[in-house]
Simulated scan of single mutants.
Amino acid sequence: MRRLLAVGFFLALTVLALLLLAGHGPWAGESFWAFDESHGLNTGDVPVLAIWGMGVVGCVLLWTHDS
């Protein structure tokens, strides 16, 4: 059950992060790494990636923790 929860949380976090990264709202901020003319990373993506990373660490801990 614990591993199923970890996979579910990982999938939810990843889908939400991708949706936020794909957004082009006014809060996106300045671009600092362009992949091409219309795609790249901006300052608004940094918190999304940081929170996604923390969530993934939590999923790994949930997956590997023995109790």
Score class of each variant (00 low, 15 high):
1 M>K: 06
41 L>P: 00
22 A>G: 11
41 L>M: 09
19 L>G: 08
13 L>T: 00
26 P>H: 13
39 H>Q: 13
12 A>H: 07
42 N>A: 14
47 P>E: 14
55 G>Q: 04
46 V>Y: 04
27 W>D: 15
9 F>W: 06
38 S>V: 07
66 D>R: 08
28 A>F: 05
59 C>F: 00
5 L>R: 07
63 W>A: 02
28 A>W: 02
40 G>H: 06
6 A>V: 06
1 M>Y: 10
65 H>D: 14
7 V>S: 10
65 H>K: 11
34 A>E: 13
57 V>M: 06
21 L>T: 03
60 V>C: 08
67 S>L: 06
37 E>K: 06
15 V>G: 03
23 G>L: 07
62 L>S: 03
23 G>Q: 10
44 G>M: 05
10 F>W: 13
8 G>A: 15
32 F>D: 12
62 L>V: 08
7 V>K: 02
66 D>L: 10
22 A>F: 12
59 C>S: 03
56 V>R: 01
61 L>V: 09
56 V>A: 13
49 L>N: 10
11 L>Q: 11
60 V>M: 08
31 S>N: 10
65 H>L: 15
54 M>L: 15
62 L>W: 00
40 G>L: 06
25 G>Q: 11
40 G>S: 06
64 T>L: 13
10 F>E: 04
5 L>H: 10
5 L>T: 08
14 T>W: 01
43 T>C: 12
6 A>Q: 07
63 W>L: 11
33 W>L: 15
